[in-house]
Design a protein around this nucleic acid. Structure first.
Lengths: 199, 199
DNA sequence: TCTCGTTATGTCAGTAACTGACATATACTC
DNA sequence: GAGTATATGTCAGTTACTGACATAACGAGA
């Protein structure tokens, strides 16, 4: 009895989050998730390629929003400036999802398998950002490096914002990007012979 | 018939790499790996927590070497300098493993599941580097950020070195860290209203 | 309204990764 | 030579995931 298809996906997602919170990720079965959502296990796997993915829906839209913002950033911004611009543009989206993402994050923090998946999602974001930078004319290698570094700063800022939302994500982002500049600017290269520790 | 335990692990590792190259990762069964190594499937899982891990042995030693080098770096080096020092100190180790890691990398490049595992290994490296930086007195958040950024530069340099080994890893590392400085130094912050694209 | 093609789902059988429990054989020590 | 620890074998079982086929709802058009 197909209601809409999209409906079942939402129920499955909800059921998965609930059960993971109640019993933990490893202790819940895909069959149990399907049962609570009122469908069959087979249907679960028609909506999600694997058990982990049930917690990661919507990431595609977020990735698209971020890379679109990079492309739409003012032309006079250099790579890191465009990234900062893009990160600031999604603050509202993130703020709206806070109530949903909080319990989700709690489950992830307790589950290595889910943490692993977070890493691949992040890698996907980096790839998208890198591609967007290239569309701005940034050279290939630099784009990849900038996307990685920018993502690190974003993660840093988002974590701080999670614990202390008052200043707003934008403020945390500015602090993170400042920290980045400090890291590079005060940095002096080690001497040419410095690598020979092991003699 | 237990030979030494360590012996079986090596045979399993070797068999896994061979079979993955011949048939691909997904098409290879843990039972097949065990059979070629002359042991039982159960023994495979006594040596490796899961199928993927058969390709990632030795990473622990590499991680330890890197973080030890960070701790042993000259005191006058700032965070990024200490990281660069550490990365240069493992060039010989990496060069020695080139013949083994080349086919391994080829398998990984064709296997999403293994790429995902690479990401968690990298995350483990970042955590270790961050801890080593903290032991040098670097503040918590800065240490994490520096470790991530440094690791990005290392990956950038290692990739370039893989395609063009002649200049040596050290030269590629210097180039990568220079690129990092360029990213931050030329970077101008976007104006305060820049985030309002979506109106 | 009937028909037909499309789509979401159900059903069922099967594969393969991984685990726990117990038995056994080898190596190591006293 | 007895005894202990360790690596392995054996076996039964769970669960994530897949392919093949059947069926029920839905929409478009005659």
């Amino acid at each position: 009895m197909p209601r809409s298809g999209e409906d079942a996906r939402r129920r499955l997602q909800q059921a998965a989050l609930e059960l993971f919170r109640e019993r933990g990720y490893e202790a819940t079965t895909t069959a149990e998730i399907a049962a609570r959502a009122g469908v069959t296990e087979r249907t679960f796997f028609r909506h999600f390629p694997d058990k982990r993915e049930a917690l990661f829906h919507g990431e595609d839209a977020f990735r698209a929003a971020l890379s679109d913002a990079v492309i739409a950033a003012p032309d006079d911004l250099d790579p890191m400036g465009a990234l900062l611009f893009a990160f600031r543009s999604v603050e509202q989206t993130l703020a709206n999802n806070r109530s949903f993402s909080a319990p989700r994050q709690a489950v992830i923090d307790q589950t290595p398998a889910l943490q692993e998946r977070v890493l691949t999602k992040t890698a996907g974001l980096i790839t998208a950002l890198s591609g967007a930078l290239r569309r701005r004319g940034v050279e290939d290698g630099v784009a990849t490096l900038a996307a990685q570094v920018g993502m690190a700063a974003f993660g840093y800022a988002a974590g701080a914002w999670f614990h202390d939302p008052k200043p707003g994500l934008g403020a945390h982002l500015l602090r993170a990007f400042d920290a980045l500049q400090d890291l590079s600017s005060t940095f002096r290269k080690p001497g040419p012979n410095s690598a020979d520790v092991h003699r």
